[in-house]
């Protein structure tokens, strides 16, 4: 009796292991990458699914670097990135026979946010660089602001925004680095939360995240050179505007092509605008 029972348990464990391996056979697209693009791509996926009911679209965030890594590991169909691929990553792709193809699907203004009580209205690239790279700057009065302790928020290094902001504002040289004591948060939403509650806080977030938060934080106008006029993120020539990419393995075909075409279609680009990003046509003219 006991023997039989053990044999049954044994067998069922074995068969159980095999059964787990079987999929459900439904067509699906898996996308991973930029946290900034997560909301947008999820909206696209929802609208896409309404049209093509039988295709399941899974979207997950985690950062541009994470998505590119997933593309290299072949665990996703394509990745979203708020920055261009690094050379190292392109090399890593080639090693495993992946040919990354870049698709610009929208543009994003990177908004500079401060606490709503901060009297500043605009900021220059030079000041931003000082604030984000120089540990000696600890008070707003060192950069022409009020006497208030400065707290610098940024993203963590897996974020495309982290890399984009560094290269654009701090610089591309080896010596151009973020200050070590920048608070590194786990996403756009967390930066907003922190800046909202920290009087001397400053942070950068994707424009899409600022929509609906305008009362609780202040979005600064940005000027590139001292002689420029400072521009709001909505402006066509806003200096902190970057392309948002999809990276596919080779030219897309089938469902993946259908999805990207949908994102670039008029309907898809309308969603871009609704989500607070900048449609491709509007920026490229």
């Amino acid at each position: 009796m006991i023997r039989k029972m053990i044999a049954i348990i044994f067998l069922s464990v074995l068969t159980g292991t095999y059964l787990v391996g079987c999929g459900d056979g439904q067509e699906s697209i898996k996308i991973e990458g930029s946290d900034t693009m997560l909301n947008l791509t999820t909206k696209w996926a929802q609208a896409f699914k309404e049209k093509h009911g039988n295709i399941k679209v899974q979207v997950s965030g985690g950062g541009s670097g994470k998505g590119i890594k997933a593309l290299i590991n072949k665990s996703v169909d394509f990745s979203m990135a708020s920055r261009k691929m690094k050379e190292k990553e392109v090399e890593a792709c080639k090693k495993v026979n992946i040919e990354p193809v870049e698709h610009i699907v929208a543009y994003d203004g990177l908004a500079i946010v401060v606490h709503k009580d901060n009297p500043l209205d605009e900021i220059s690239f030079a000041t931003l660089k000082k604030i984000y790279s120089d540990r000696g700057i600890t008070n707003w009065n060192q950069v022409g602001g009020p006497d208030m302790k400065l707290v610098v928020f940024g993203r963590d290094s897996s974020s495309g925004t982290f890399v984009y902001f560094k290269e654009k504002v701090i610089g591309k040289k080896e010596t151009d680095q973020y200050r070590d004591d920048m608070k590194r948060t786990q996403g756009n939403a967390q930066i907003l939360d922190q800046v909202k509650t920290t009087r001397g806080g400053i942070g950068y977030v994707g424009l899409g995240y600022v929509e609906g938060q305008r009362g609780s934080v202040k979005v600064l106008k940005v000027r590139k050179k001292a002689s420029d006029t400072a521009l709001a993120p909505e402006h066509r020539d806003y200096p902190l505007c970057r392309p948002l990419h999809f990276y596919t393995n080779g030219e897309p075909t089938g469902n993946i092509k259908a999805f990207i075409d949908f994102a670039l279609s008029e309907e898809g680009q309308k969603i871009v605008e609704e989500e607070g990003f900048i449609p491709k046509k509007k920026r490229e003219g």
């Binding site: 950062g63 670097g65 890594k69 590991n73 190292k88 290094s157 897996s158 786990q186």
Partner: peptide, 11 residues
Amino acid sequence: ASEMGEVVYGS
């Protein structure tokens, strides 16, 4: 935890 996700394999 925060860097393993993005790091290039073998670097």
